[in-house]
Nucleic acid binder design. Structure first.
Lengths: 160, 160
DNA sequence: GATAATTCGTTGAAGCGTCAAGTAAGGTGG
DNA sequence: CCACCTTACTTGACGCTTCAACGAATTATC
């Protein structure tokens, strides 16, 4: 469990970097937990579940192929499949095999699912405002979004 | 599972807000997963485990009370306790009851634990650089850190 | 000086995500 | 036309986090 293969003198963080990293780490640790907690408490859906339903609600026919949803939500197909099983059990979505070439599966938002998305959407934006957007000025927010995007873009993101 | 008690017309997001939120959400979803994956792969420790060991390594006597560690790592006491059990099993830390008033427990970094921290620290900073710091210019990084801190500060953080 | 309340920590069960393997449906090359 | 590869999705087992309940040690209350 040693370090990397022959490390060439580590570049330690200077004070500015250290401070920036501290704040960033704090954000990464706390925000997701807060968002998820509030969503679950006030909407009965995890953040990921809501995202999934929202993606479907914006899709033609409220329908989309599983692998497309996975890409849209940055999740593994496996995770999506598990969550879809649960949401299907709750009657919020339905899965159907797509006729034609390949082994494709579509997920469709049911009426109940659509009703739920409509019902909780206001609460969702409110939570996002409380915990993120309203904590910065519009100018700061734009700046933050652009920088966050640059970090997240991760030209790499190795083929997981 | 309806919306909030009598919602007063939701303030939907404008285009700028929407874009900022998209980037932020992307960051919150991807970065933690990437950081954890790299840490586990290259260091044999999750990010949280490393943080815990690092906190101890910087403490006097390499020792600190459980509840203090929980606060320092923004984790629940329960989570910390489970992780401590595992790390203790690996011989990286040791727990001892504190004599005196109250029911306090100290965690101490063992020699092996300290050796591991020293060994993987360079890899840890390298990962942080690759995935975060080196993706922005120093100026951008400072700005980003300040804004992240403002969001994460969350004067609220309701009594969970 | 018992009862209750507070603080601190552990534990077990349940839920969710990941990983590795399996399944399904077509395509490709020999 | 059959062995093999690729893409798309599912499944089961395992590990980690959370939640709720409990246990330990002291202090406050009556």
């Amino acid at each position: 469990m040693a370090a990397e293969p022959s490390s060439p003198a580590p570049r330690w963080l200077d004070d500015d970097e250290h401070e920036a990293w501290r704040s960033t780490a704090m954000l990464l640790i706390r925000l997701p937990a807060q968002l998820d907690a509030e969503m679950t408490r006030r909407c009965g859906l995890t953040f990921f579940e809501y995202s999934l339903l929202a993606v479907l609600s914006e899709s033609p026919e409220r329908t989309r192929q599983m692998s497309e949803i996975a890409a849209a939500t940055s999740s593994s197909l496996s995770r999506l499949s598990h969550v879809a099983t649960r949401l299907e059990g709750r009657g919020l979505i339905r899965r159907t095999r797509v006729e034609g070439p390949g082994r494709r599966t579509n997920a469709t938002l049911t009426e109940e699912g659509m009703a739920l998305v409509v019902a909780v959407a206001p609460t969702h934006v409110e939570i996002v405002r409380e915990l993120v957007l309203d904590r910065l000025t519009p100018t700061q927010l734009t700046t933050f979004g652009r920088l966050a995007g640059r970090i997240a873009a991760g030209d790499d993101c190795p083929p997981r």
